[in-house]
Simulated scan of single mutants.
Amino acid sequence: MIICPAQHFDIFSIMNIERQSFIPAIQEKKRVFEKRLKIFPEGFLLLADCSDEVILKNKTALICGYLCAERWDELPDFSNIESKNKKDYKKSLRKIEKRFEPGHNPLYTHKNEGRFLYISSFALLKEYRTKGLGEKFFKNSVAALCGSMKTIEKIVLLVNEEWKGALKIYEKFGFSEIFRLQDFFPTIQKKQKSDGIIMTCDAECFRNIEFNTSENDLNGIKI
């Protein structure tokens, strides 16, 4: 397994992972991934299975996971939102929701010199889950991004409260909840919604992680 940069010709594989990972109501559109690749290609990484078995079967490596990110220059001010009057509260809350909602346009949120690394999405093909690969892929990807971007101070992400596996990974690496968006995510039960949990972690937590690279693996990170 190696972690390598995403390319525009990987879009089909990325969309396949997206469809396997999320319900239709929150799946990202192809054009959103294309924008992310165009605006911040350094923040879009793939997990590729380069095993002999896969190469023999498919004649090429199999893209089995992706992680994409943006750089933000600031975070919304969560500290005093609860104390605002009803009208201002709704306005401030909607502003936060728009920044974190799936499908938001990175053209308006990404800043090349931003101090916050926002993990906008992270997913694996079904057959590669529950094997510890998700944790390794996430850890090494974020470590690589933080290592190459020295001015990043914090990692930020949004997770559905129902995604227990992802929550477990994030908490293991020191992420903590800073704000909760109530009824943010659609669910399979159309009349129900689940909360979105905004979490952060210091970038330094990932900067001491070591990983292996090899020219034989297209300069990718081996996991």
Rank of each mutant, 00 (worst) to 15 (best):
K38W: 01
K30G: 05
E162K: 04
K136S: 08
F185W: 14
F206P: 03
D73R: 02
P24V: 10
F185C: 14
N208Q: 08
C201Y: 03
K191D: 15
I63S: 08
L218R: 02
N16T: 11
M1K: 01
Q182M: 13
E171R: 00
N140K: 05
G147R: 03
N105L: 06
G134I: 00
D202K: 06
R94F: 03
H104R: 10
I188R: 15
G132T: 04
E74K: 06
L56W: 01
G132Y: 07
C146W: 02
F100R: 04
Q20F: 10
G220W: 00
V159W: 04
G147E: 12
I221L: 01
F9N: 14
E97I: 07
Y89K: 14
K35A: 10
P5K: 02
G114A: 02
I96S: 10
S121G: 12
K95M: 07
E177R: 05
W72R: 00
K154C: 05
R129L: 12
R180S: 13
Q27D: 14
V159P: 10
I23D: 11
F206E: 08
R180F: 06
R99W: 06
D195A: 11
D183L: 09
K139I: 03
L37C: 03
K168Q: 15
L56G: 13
L47K: 00
